[in-house]
Write a protein that binds this DNA or RNA. Structure first.
Lengths: 199, 199
DNA sequence: CTTCTATACAAACGTTTGTTTACCAGATTC
DNA sequence: GAATCTGGTAAACAAACGTTTGTATAGAAG
């Protein structure tokens, strides 16, 4: 039942947002009454926290795995990172979107935890970009302006692309999550100026 | 005072979300009591609608202008579109984010209006991409897979990148909105496989 | 000077909110 | 078989919600 509550709550938070979802709506979706939720979680906020924690742990694990799959080639690593993150946010788009938008409604300390997890993900991308630049595999210098694109800006651009795919992707459409992830990996390599022929 | 209510409400919706922002909070921020809001707007939802309508009208106007600035070169048009949209979502990030996240809380008909506006914006990008492909200025075919990236996927990737810049951009930082917009325009050209030397 | 309009106010409306309480049935343990 | 534990129920709580009401006041229009 604890798990059931988590899943139904995630769906409702996804549809209506955390503040607009009452405890009674969540428990009714599980076929029990409101008071029952407090046998499993200390508060409505605790339910949100549990959802976000699970989502972040899973996505971080997938990224670590993606890094390994890429071997020691930064361009392949970047492609794998994009693939894994896009897959996560399309296959588990409900939790993914909730994690991205509803952390503001957590108490301060738990909100900070979530922000830390987001920062760690960003650092993984930034370090991969730095390795690729050092290896001469990426090209971020604009010939028309003197200054190249900054690594943190590129990382945020790529992250926003992957993460927000969950917002419009529909699993019932003709495009599969894996096809989308492949296209995004390719587009990202072009974005950082990698040579797709050699990757 | 109507304008004042709109601005304070936008700020509060941005910070806490629409359902978590009470009419009393909005009016208190304006120095009046709750009932007063109903002299200017029919409901709390009407306030949200007014914010979203203004934001969408302004951003669509900027994009039309950007198209003209790009002349008849699809690559330059795309760069201008990215520049304008990024500028809008960084310089007016409060309204921009609210428009992107809170439309779900509108009544059905007004929510549809907002979705229509978002679709029109996407179509502008898609048509520009199609013109660029037809002119041979963009390259979206992945050598490692048989199928090229789809135009609608590329449009969504670019849009998510620009729109969500408002989520992390901070005007008090060292990076200016214009610098960011320039970097995003460059990154987008690389993403679609345009030759930056020729643009 | 009077009248009209706009906008503010305090107070109250019925609902709904998150949470706590006291109680109860069924399974598990000793 | 008695005790304990688990997870459910109905009912109640104060607080906050969006909105409506009747009234007051100030400035513009006639």
């Amino acid at each position: 039942m604890s798990r059931r509550i988590l899943d139904e709550a995630a769906r409702l938070f996804y549809e209506d947002g955390f503040p607009a979802t009452s405890v009674r709506k969540i428990t009714a979706a599980c076929g029990v009454t409101a008071g029952s939720l407090y046998n499993h979680y200390g508060s409505k906020e605790d339910v949100l926290y549990a959802i976000l924690k699970r989502a972040h742990e899973d996505s971080e694990a997938l990224l670590e795995e993606g890094l390994l799959h890429g071997g020691d080639r930064p361009d392949r690593q970047l492609a794998e990172l994009v693939r894994e993150l896009t897959l996560f946010h399309t296959e588990r788009r409900i939790e993914g979107l909730v994690a991205r938008t509803e952390w503001r409604h957590l108490p301060a300390e738990q909100a900070r935890e979530v922000l830390d997890a987001q920062r760690r993900v960003r650092r993984i991308f930034e370090r991969t970009l730095e390795r690729g630049l050092a290896a001469g595999r990426f090209r971020l210098s604009d010939p028309r302006s003197q200054r190249p694109a900054q690594v943190d800006v590129v990382a945020k651009a790529v992250l926003d692309m992957c993460i927000n795919a969950g917002q419009w992707f529909r699993p019932e459409g003709s495009l599969t999550a894996r096809e989308l992830a492949d296209q995004y990996a390719f587009l990202t390599l072009q974005l950082v100026g990698a040579d797709p022929e050699q990757t």
